[in-house]
Design a binder for these strands. Structure first.
Lengths: 254, 254
DNA sequence: CGTTCCGTTGAGTGCCGTCAATCCGGGTGG
DNA sequence: CCACCCGGATTGACGGCACTCAACGGAACG
């Protein structure tokens, strides 16, 4: 009986990780790419919900790849309010943007219990040097993250509360579907209305009213930690949602 | 008499460009870095104010480095409104983020007459391969751009009109100072109140009222295309402005 | 000298925030 | 098993920040 190649086995395991899954939507990853990737996954760590794992002003922080759970990045304002910039779901980087700065410019809070792989900046750059294809894929992921931030900005600037909320939930649905969590019908959502409010620039009270309106209009139901798209087409139209920047029919690079 | 080395001369010319000036705030660029940089500047082009030089959905667009003038990147919404994501000033990239996407996800409009160098994506990647230091500098510039977008997002979500406007003008002032245009006292600003409104998620009418309030409170004056910081400390306090992500005391990498 | 763009100001409106009370489910301790 | 507590969800009343509509002045331009 032939014992399977250990590295090969490793690659086979990694291929179903949310991170590889997301990258695979952009580039076709070879076995060697996957092997390099699996090396990055070594230092797995677990964080409890609620306690920040990175905060503004912190110097020389590491980068994480989120393996399980939800997190959010946010900024605090003097008034005591905060603005959530983005939510991170499995497959997303934590703190990639500020890796080139001396200090992190935002906080990251685990919303649920979180499992993440700690990646040394040096190892990441090393991996890039070995597999340019992987480097391209990561750059694409970073561009995609920024595109989401931009879309978020547009929503805050020019969409009313209902459109903004609908757009946000559609985007989360599309992102989750891409990494194999959730479907076109909906997804499990651990976000409280307070978190939603801090992300969408609204008050929790108003979020509640908006969700009720969406529910009564037969568009979507968000109750008991479940988001259900009752009328997907109607939502897409209402929110002017275009998933082009998130999804692709297939890899762009082969 | 010795004729100076042509390449050397080229490097001497480029060192005063806004782009090099901005990068130099982050890394110390060697003569060879500057030579590579000057190669990127070859294809200089001019665009008149007002006509978009890139639009949403456009495929395989080039990247530009802005040499002179102001531009803005924006997204259109179905209602006919638009949201300006960011303004670009000399030294900034145009369209860098969407270079890895098949299609641009936003429009770019020259606000004034604009001079820009067209850079082929291939040449850029080639330059990166030759001088990793330059690659790092460009990545830093990209991270800085994203940090500005994030700060913009925070403003739209959680700052009122006055704070938001003050913060925006302070940020523009800091950016312009970094590339050698404008000073601590103020700067020449070609933006109309309509452009300001589209950027800050407000109506032009309200921008007008906000500017009046800032003026009457002795904080800043924006008239006849000139922004003057009448009370810089007061503005910084009002807007909770922190230029850490824009400016540095000196290069971080030597 | 009309046109157009930009800036300015007033009046009225509405979306969304704040304050406050209530309800509900789950966890905890008696 | 029940009382208590606590975070989150829900709803109502009220107020304010910023929008819309509208009108007018001034400067640039053909």
């Amino acid at each position: 009986m032939v014992r399977p190649d250990a590295k090969r086995l490793c690659a086979m395991t990694i291929v179903n990780s949310p991170f590889a899954r997301k990258l695979a939507a952009f580039v076709t990853l070879s076995d060697s790419d996957l092997t390099v990737l699996s090396d990055l996954y070594r230092r797995r760590r677990v964080f409890p919900a609620g306690r920040d794992l990175m905060h503004q002003g912190q110097t020389s922080h590491p980068v994480y790849i989120l393996a399980d759970g939800w997190a959010c990045s946010y900024k605090l304002l003097p008034g005591g309010t905060r603005q959530i910039v983005d939510f991170q779901i499995p497959g997303d980087f934590l703190g990639l943007r500020s890796v080139l700065f001396r200090t992190a410019d935002h906080n990251i809070e685990p919303i649920t219990r979180v499992e993440a792989s700690e990646v040394m900046a040096h190892d990441l750059l090393d991996a890039f040097a070995r597999t340019p294809r992987l480097a391209t894929a990561v750059l694409w992921a970073a561009s995609r993250d920024e595109a989401m931030v931009v879309e978020h900005l547009v929503g805050l600037g020019r969409r009313n509360a209902v459109e903004r909320t609908a757009h946000f939930l559609l985007e989360m649905g599309a992102r989750l579907k891409l990494v194999g969590i959730g479907s076109k019908a909906g997804f499990a959502c651990p976000l409280s209305q307070y978190l939603l409010a801090d992300a969408l620039g609204l008050s929790a009270v108003h979020i509640n009213r908006v969700l009720r309106e969406l529910r009564e209009d037969g568009l979507l139901t968000f109750q008991h930690g479940q988001v259900v798209f009752d009328d997907l087409a109607g939502l897409v139209k209402l929110a002017d949602f275009d998933a082009a920047y998130l999804d692709h029919d297939g890899p762009l690079l082969r």
